[in-house]
Design a protein around this nucleic acid. Structure first.
Lengths: 167, 167
DNA sequence: TCTCTCCGCTTGCACTCTGCAACCGGTGAG
DNA sequence: CTCACCGGTTGCAGAGTGCAAGCGGAGAGA
């Protein structure tokens, strides 16, 4: 009856779900890149994920309840992937991972901007961002917000790209 | 000249180093379990890591500067593994991973205690813990502290184990 | 000195997972 | 009717994983 978990340690259990090279990359792309379709995730992937791996990960993430899939009624073959509350709550994990990578690994300046803003913004900013994700993915009611965190991150990224090109 | 990184995204770079089932488990055991020797890591592993995998991961982590290895001058064949500043700064990542696993996955109560205390303690407690790790692993000067976080975690864990047994 | 145990690993093997490229049937637009 | 695009699947070679057994060196006891 008991599961085949390696142990009941919460860190271990998280790693059993997320402990591979691609799962968090897919979630990152859906979350920060707003890529909601298979081809988008495949072709706009910064790291060049293979189609079978993407397919497998989307299945796994769906099975674990981190992603949901719904078909667009207008475009029948078009599938829309959405985050769930579980994966939205991975924001702090991704922020900390990004902060660590930014500090110790050769991260490119443009791609580090988002990590920096989220790191410096602290838990309040994460919470705002998570609320926006709930609106975008779970259909939650939008709450009045001075400036969308998502847009703020996107804008900063675009500025960094432009600055990188001109310099 | 450029490296073979999949991309310059800080999250991706972190995953290239830590994105597998075992690396963070090994760091967790050194960090929270104070397992400093190979046999200790092998035999006291909650998840039952295989010896070749452990050997490989220790090499990888050493190569990436997350772990250092030194031989005990008294016991020549005995190797002491230590954390580095880089891996000590993974504390927030591990805490967030633990908090997430505790929230959404079937974590056992005893093993969740540490995760809960660190989660609830917040960044100040993490900083204290990281200072203690610097003393234990980097030979930093101990700073006066009312109660060692390490001992606090250990004590809470032992109490939870005892409570679990008696109930 | 001889033996016994423990030390950090290494080796061999079967099996699975990964990454790449080619390919698939269904669908909507022109 | 055609054609590009949709979310995938398939085949294959090579890399990674998990298990069990074994290795030489060292420390301890007799």
């Amino acid at each position: 009856m008991e599961s085949e978990h390696r142990s009941g340690c919460p860190i271990n259990l998280s790693l059993e779900v997320l402990g591979d090279s691609w799962s968090l990359i897919v979630i990152r792309d859906i979350m920060f890149g707003d890529r909601r379709h298979y081809r988008q995730l495949l072709n706009e992937s910064e790291e060049g994920i293979a189609s079978n791996i993407l397919s497998d990960r989307l299945k796994r993430l769906t099975a674990h309840g981190l992603v949901t899939k719904q078909s667009d009624p207008a475009h029948k073959q078009r599938q829309l992937y959405s985050l769930t509350e579980q994966s939205i709550q991975l924001v702090p994990v991704l922020v900390q991972l990004g902060a660590w990578g930014r500090k110790f690994l050769p991260a490119s300046p443009e791609l580090s901007i988002r990590a920096r803003i989220l790191d410096e913004g602290g838990p309040e900013l994460w919470a705002d961002f998570m609320d926006e994700l709930r609106v975008m993915h779970l259909g939650a009611e939008p709450r009045a917000s001075a400036e969308s965190v998502f847009e703020k991150l996107e804008k900063a990224y675009q500025e960094a790209v432009a600055a990188g090109r001109s310099s």
